[in-house]
């Protein structure tokens, strides 16, 4: 039996989410390097079309585990269903996106399979034998750790979103669709989803945003975040905040970027009135391009910013908004 490398699918509102495709891309590259088959594992219900479309982006196999109990994501039935299949197919590795769902499911699945798990990896390499080496940030990214799971199988990892290139659609590849029956009793482990409340802003979520505008203590008051929101609306992007702004009660902690907030990997991060404390940098230093606006030329953020503007943000930000609006026109 040829070795298999698995990507576990995450769905939302009937669609396969982009982080899954990023993991699939990584698995494809690993699979090609070691000659292993890449399988997309979709636990769900009525998801075949979405699964097929995603599988076409790099999978050799689509395992479709459909069951009533899998209609909405819950940790326990998903862990059992996937673990049961893994016990049968014995994949070499199982990778998931390090999203909220992935980070909830992977550890439970790893415990069930009695194997090791590398969390929130930013690099995944393989040797010729298919032993994977992962690089992951620890201590909020202050240092990087290289780890591997030398003996236990399957090797498991979650991959940080927006780092790995998503799988490419490959018209030459027709994934084999394997329908799998799941052995799940009704109400496995007594958990029900009562409702899902969408965040009210309607803006893109921070960890998935390509562009983020963020405000800190330099905003001086909560109302001033309006100017950031206007800038964000111009670009169609997310608004973040530093811990200072959240602790002051100006922004919700869901908006917090930093060590005890969210880790973001946007293409462009504009930091306004943020001094650049280590804990904040931990959350955004992997942004591709950082612009900082601060009136203090000694602010630490200027050490990491690609472009730093020393000036009064209350003048700069509106000017930036207008200039950006013009480039879009």
């Amino acid at each position: 039996m040829a070795a298999e490398i698995w990507t576990v699918v995450e769905m939302r509102d009937g669609e396969v989410r982009i982080p899954t495709l990023e993991v699939l891309g990584a698995c494809r590259r690993i699979g090609d390097a070691v000659g292993a088959k890449v399988a997309l594992v979709l636990a769900g219900k009525d998801a075949e079309p979405a699964g097929r479309e995603a599988a076409a982006r790099g999978a050799d196999i689509l395992y479709l585990i459909e069951h009533e109990e899998l209609a909405a994501y819950r940790t326990e039935p998903f862990a059992k269903a996937i673990a049961d299949l893994a016990a049968e197919k014995k994949p070499n590795a199982i990778l998931l996106p390090a999203t909220s769902q992935g980070k909830d499911l992977a550890p439970r699945l790893a415990a069930r399979l009695g194997t090791g798990l590398a969390s929130d990896c930013i690099e995944a390499d393989t040797d010729s034998a298919g032993v994977l080496t992962f690089t992951r940030p620890i201590y909020a990214g202050k240092v990087l750790e290289k780890i591997s799971i030398p003996e236990a199988r399957p090797q498991m990892a979650t991959l940080r979103p927006k780092i790995f290139a998503p799988g490419e659609a490959d018209p030459g590849r027709q994934p084999e669709v394997v329908k799998v029956a799941a052995d799940l009793s009704p109400d496995v482990l007594g958990k029900t989803v009562k409702e899902t409340i969408k965040a009210s802003t309607g803006r893109v979520e921070l960890t998935e945003a390509d562009f983020i505008v963020s405000g800190g203590r330099g905003m001086k008051e909560p109302d001033q975040f309006k100017i950031l929101e206007e800038l964000a609306d111009t670009l169609g992007v997310a608004v973040g905040a530093s811990r200072a702004a959240v602790d002051a009660g100006w922004r919700d902690h869901q908006d917090q970027v930093g060590q005890t907030g969210k880790t973001v990997t946007p293409t462009l991060y504009i930091a306004c009135g943020i001094s650049g404390a280590i804990q904040h940098l931990a959350g955004m230093s992997s942004a591709k391009c950082i612009v900082a606006v601060n009136k203090d030329p000694e602010a630490p953020i200027f050490k990491v910013a690609d472009y730093g503007i020393v000036g009064d943000l209350f003048e700069v930000v509106p000017a930036l908004k207008n200039a950006l609006k013009e480039t879009q026109a």
Partner: peptide
């Protein structure tokens, strides 16, 4: 441990950027 640490390193430093001052516009 099933997941074994191989090594620890500092992340590559971000290249220093450019600071602009002067007339806002």
């Amino acid at each position: 441990p099933k997941a074994k640490r191989l090594s620890v390193s500092t992340p590559p430093p971000r290249r220093a950027g450019r600071v602009l001052e002067g007339d806002v516009a």
